[in-house]
Nucleic acid binder design. Structure first.
Lengths: 233, 233
DNA sequence: CACAGGCTCATTATCGATAATATACAGGTG
DNA sequence: CACCTGTATATTATCGATAATGAGCCTGTG
């Protein structure tokens, strides 16, 4: 948000964020203020601020006098988020098309990387470039509020959290779904691009639904680790 | 977010929020931590937390060691927000229709109050019930993520901030734009309701654009009051 | 007069300590 | 043995004080 903040609390926030992203911190894990403060060789105050920021990003939950813990994301929420993302991206494409004037070079770059990752079977890379691709279109809309709304969905965190549990994703096939929207954007047809992108999002959502129905495992959200969980380690 | 927090920082946050809403605090006004702390007879810490929350709600801006001030909302941002709100509401209507099963009693209640306020020329009331109406449809979508995204647009704050400067708004005429979407919802036609709602939002946006072009006054955003502004009072 | 450098002061960022609260556990009771 | 009650403890919420920083001012120079 403010990229130029140099205070301790921001460093802590960023560090904790990446731990949540990379799975070091799992849903339900408790974040104990003084413990983190010791680790960063600082006091409780900046840690609290960092935690509150994470809460506003919905990466953690907290309750008064009960602490803070990593937020789990249910399949239901994932599906809800896909629905919202769909219309946001549709709008983004419609706004982006007249602005781009056919110059989709940057977007094509991300697209190429998506295909590359798909061929290599690199799930991590696929997720990253996929996000770059979609966010690129949103950025091209030049609508600050839209960009914010999109970012707040925190798709990176959501997807990464579930990546590990993914079976054999047909990456190459999925990657192809991105081609047509870009073609439409290139010829300035934002409406079509938007419709295609939304359809793409819908199919992502559907895949998620299917998977969550078939695998049947832990659709529950870890609520919070018990207090003495840290003693076990 | 967590309605059951009883800590000081939340009370401060709520108090400051309503001051921003009701115009006691104007864009550009500085929020000095110790000053607020004295007022609430508390220390700096809870005030800081409150300010950070307001920042995440984008009601205030801040920079390190430079403080916090009420955020202005430009006409451009307002227009951007309308565009996003349009697609969010459209989606909401589509999702709400099958859930409501024609039961639009609650929504009609808000609608009646809108018309009533319009007849009475009660701009404040109109704004309130109008928001209730639109939010009611979003709530009926039963999509938590969508509700969050909508709320984050903070339309209440945005609209109220500009209400005072509004000329003769043709409220009665505007109120009528809400009728058709409700009819559509009642007969379960979410797609039509969504399209109409989006069109409504577009016309709100357009009115805003027209007004901001014709009035030509202070399209600028107050950045921040100078440090010694408080001495003048 | 425009402008750079250094000084002062208001304010933020952080600290270490204390008050307040929830959780876990022990003991008693039916 | 299940259940309640009270107590110990871990942890959060808040406090008052200090360190760090930026804004404004003053001075001197060209």
């Amino acid at each position: 948000m403010n990229p130029d903040r140099q205070c301790m609390s921001d460093a802590i926030r960023d560090s904790l964020t990446s731990r949540i992203f990379d799975g070091t911190l799992k849903p339900g894990d408790r974040l104990v203020e003084l413990e983190i403060a010791r680790e960063f060789d600082t006091s409780q105050t900046p840690v609290r601020e960092a935690l509150r920021e994470l809460e506003s990003l919905r990466l953690v939950d907290s309750a008064p006098y009960r602490g803070t813990w990593v937020r789990g994301i249910s399949d239901r929420e994932m599906v809800e988020a896909y629905a919202v993302r769909g219309v946001l991206e549709q709008l983004a494409a419609e706004l982006a098309a007249p602005r781009l004037k056919g110059d989709v070079a940057e977007i094509r770059e991300s697209l190429a990387l998506i295909h590359e990752s798909a061929r290599a079977g690199d799930i991590e890379g696929y997720a990253k470039h996929n996000l770059d691709f979609h966010r690129g279109i949103v950025l091209a809309s030049d609508n600050e509020v839209l960009i914010q709304s999109f970012d707040r969905l925190a798709f990176e965190a959501r997807v990464r959290l579930h990546l590990r549990s993914q079976h054999e994703p047909r990456l190459i096939e999925r990657a192809r779904e991105h081609d047509e929207p870009v073609d439409a954007l290139e010829r300035g047809d934002g409406v079509t691009a938007g419709r295609l992108l939304r359809k793409h999002t819908e199919s992502c959502k559907q895949r998620w639904l299917d998977r969550s129905l078939t695998t049947e495992l832990d659709t529950s959200i870890p609520e919070r680790q018990p207090v003495n969980a840290s003693y076990l380690s």
